[in-house]
Amino acid sequence: MGTLVSLLLLGLMWGGVYLLMAQGLNLIYGVMRVVNLAHGDLIVMGGLIAFSLFHHAGLSPLLALAPVFALLFVLGLLIAAGVLERIEEEGPRGELRTLFATFGLSYLLANTSFLIWGGQFQSIPFLQGALVLGPLTLPEGLAAASAAAFALALLLHLFLERTLTGKTIRAVAQSPLGAAASGIAVRWVRVFTFALGTALAGAAGALVICLVPFQSASGPDLTVQSFTLVALGGLGNMLGAWLAAELLGLIEVFAQYTLGPDAATAAFYLLFILFLIVRPQGLLGQAGRV
């Protein structure tokens, strides 16, 4: 019984980290209609930067969130302004060009990470103690990372809901033409949004690497995990995304516990495929809004 409740709580905490992973992707797709296949590689990069900051400067991963966020934001700006916004999408199958570009970007980033950090699995030994709550013991690291992830997700939500800049982003997502007709510089909003989504991916990476070790080649798995969340939860639906993240957190934890890590990964993919076969259009097309 104690184990079951522990697993349940673990799963729910995992959900927070998943939520943050998916939110950047969600935002970028909602505003730019760009399917960013390099999302997982950006998460990995954020995590490995936090890893270096921890090992060379002794910076706690929670404090490292700020520099990671800033670095990935700049990287996102460069990618969006330098590549994505320059792709000519006119003509037959023009929309595929951006997809291929992010496919190439995924390999470019993953192998750059490989050059810098090598191919080993890395992890940050952060708050390795256990939190004892009556009969339950929970890892402190997960609790802290989960809290940080939920806090960031909430901040993003408030930013989008309450500030004029945030509303500008939502306006572009809901009607690009309407936004342009309101005098909003749609192009810059798109670039900014991509940078923001990238920074969120980096922050998620800095938290994930405290929980599970990953390597420079882990990107594609994380990309698909993020997509699974987005497809399950429905874009822009804060509650839906959160519920999906919790659900997948639970699946992850229980599959890990009963079947091992490989089976957990396989479960993710199978769930992704099966869900989409039941709902072929996904939820992307239907509610692609932020």
Binding site: L164, K167, T168, R170, A171, Q174, S175, L177, G178, A179, A181, S182, G183, I184, G236, R289
Partner: peptide, 19 residues
């Protein structure tokens, strides 16, 4: 019309003067 469907009317209007 191209409104922002999920934003309230006030935000729809104010975004017209976002600058």
């Amino acid at each position: 019309r191209r409104l922002f469907p999920e934003l309230p009317v006030r935000d729809n209007l104010e975004l017209g003067a976002h600058g």
